[in-house]
Design a protein around this nucleic acid. Structure first.
Lengths: 104, 104
DNA sequence: ACTATATTTTCACTTAAAGTGAAAAATATT
DNA sequence: AATATTTTTCACTTTAAGTGAAAATATAGT
């Protein structure tokens, strides 16, 4: 029923792994850049969430992209992005063709 | 031999048309985001340059993208970008697969 | 060559997004 | 109730983007 890839991790552990402050992960969440699963109010990050966040860090730190640009690419259903981006994140922007008054 | 679309315009006129400071256009040029033609040391912007700059402004102002992200997309030969981006600008990034120590 | 004018470049400053530290608030646990 | 954990808020720092003003460079006219 469940396997290794269903494992999930609390925010502090994920932040430490990524080398960022946990506040940064809360910050990303305000933009729907990551949608961790909740048990109660506590957040749990899946392996997919974590590897997506690693990629986001690479885009931002190594390539110099900003957060808004990543969101633009998700909305655009950019091919490179889609292969890495969790479905929940993509879905969080699914209505953008209809309502233009979203996160921006 | 020549037609309307070969017309070119000096920087102050272009800046005024776009609603930006001419210093902004010099700034973009440092990143090869635009490559105006030169006659002597004076810059002349083609119609294509100008409509490209309009698009850049839209990406940055309306969509919130940053300059570096636009460069990433040019390097990636992003389809949406390529239809708008002058060949000279694309060419200015043509070696990026070889040398990784470029503008960043 | 000299003066006036236009364009470019440099320096220093402003603004806003991204990120973070610390404390307060909320929720859970013993 | 007291303690511990997680989340949220507030205020601050840092850096890219953009700009104002002056200095430097080039061009044209006399």
């Amino acid at each position: 029923m469940f396997n290794e890839s269903d494992k999930s991790y609390p925010i502090e552990l994920v932040a430490e792994f990524l080398g960022v402050n946990s506040r940064t992960l809360y910050y990303y969440e305000r933009f729907n850049l990551v949608v961790p699963m909740r048990r109660g109010r506590k957040r749990y990050y899946s392996r997919e969430d974590i590897s997506w966040l690693e990629y986001v860090r690479e885009l931002m730190y190594d390539q110099g992209m900003n957060l808004r640009s990543i969101i633009v690419l998700i909305k655009r259903r950019d091919g490179v992005i889609l292969t890495r981006c969790p479905q929940d994140v993509v879905n969080s922007f699914k209505n953008y063709l209809m309502k233009m008054d979203d996160v921006f």
